[in-house]
Design a protein around this nucleic acid. Structure first.
Length: 259
DNA sequence: AATCCTGCCTAGCGGGAGTT
DNA sequence: AACTCCCGCTAGGCAGGATT
């Protein structure tokens, strides 16, 4: 429901439709434009982008499926036409689409709760529930502490090669895809990982649980990895951490040093 | 009619990395 | 050294619907 916001920005339907045409004509033929260039198009047509007006027009065009993010150009995000960027999209009815989204979420992120899905998808609770109910018979559920968790039926338990460490980037879905993150991140440590302002630092994950934060500094001739663990790792855990760090160095193709 | 609840919106915030 | 950018958070205001 964008009408109140549109009004408060002194935009009307005709202006939105005009922006849609401008964007379409400029982007047609696999063109890619940065935010700045998109705003310039509007300004040339005497549509002010002051305040949140430009952002609103980008948002609503994206919301309605006209445009989407394309590749980065230097450090700038670009916009492209959705139909050109993702051609031959499958058309589906609303209830079918809700079921499909629920299926993809719970198949890939499960075990997860309805609230997790609501948070991740941005759907209304009623819509999210409808999607989940449509596919519930294909999922396995487990009740823990009054919460029902849904997951795919064929999920095997992971082999217990323990300890096992991963160095995950900031904003990784491992944390971000859930409303309730207490299963992998102890509440007492959440401040360190998510210090406020919605920032998520890169995490050390040890045996499935967040064990600290880390960061890298790339220097001439190698990458230096600084670990900030919550506690003191034992010898076996240290070996797992070292392996994760050297895997990362190998991925970058650089010698790695731990600090 | 008053109140509660819910969803939606905005403002302000924020750490770290890149840019000027 | 100061700015800018970013994938979201919370708090608080508001509107509209539900409940009493």
């Amino acid at each position: 429901n964008s009408a109140p916001r549109q009004r408060s920005l002194e935009l009307d339907e005709a202006t939105f439709q005009q922006s849609k045409r401008l964007f379409f004509e400029a982007l047609q033929g696999d063109k890619q434009l940065t935010r700045r260039e998109m705003f310039a198009l509007l300004n040339q047509a005497n549509i002010s982008t002051a305040g949140q007006r430009g952002y609103y027009l980008l948002w609503r065009n994206a919301q309605e499926g006209s445009i989407c993010f394309g590749p980065m150009r230097d450090k700038q995000q670009t916009f492209v036409l959705l139909d050109e960027w993702a051609p031959n999209a499958k058309r589906m009815e609303r209830d079918q689409a809700l079921a499909e989204l629920a299926n993809r979420y719970f198949s890939s992120r499960g075990p997860a709760t309805l609230q997790d899905f609501v948070w991740w998808s941005g759907l209304k609770v009623a819509d999210a529930r409808a999607g989940l109910e449509a596919i519930a018979s294909q999922l396995r559920s487990k009740k823990i502490d009054d919460q029902t968790y849904w997951m795919p039926p064929d999920r095997e338990s992971l082999p217990s090669i323990s300890p096992q460490a991963h160095l995950l980037p900031g904003f990784d879905e491992y944390l971000l895809a859930y409303k309730d993150r207490s299963a992998m991140l102890e509440t007492q440590h959440s401040q360190i990982i998510s210090p406020g302002g919605g920032m998520f630092r890169s995490t050390i994950v040890l045996n499935g649980r967040v064990f600290g934060a880390w960061r890298r500094v790339i220097k001439k001739g190698g990458v230096s990895i600084a670990l900030q663990p919550f506690g003191t790792p034992d010898e076996a855990e240290n070996r797992a951490l070292f392996k994760a760090a050297s895997d990362y160095g190998e991925f970058l193709g650089m010698p790695v040093s731990l600090s």
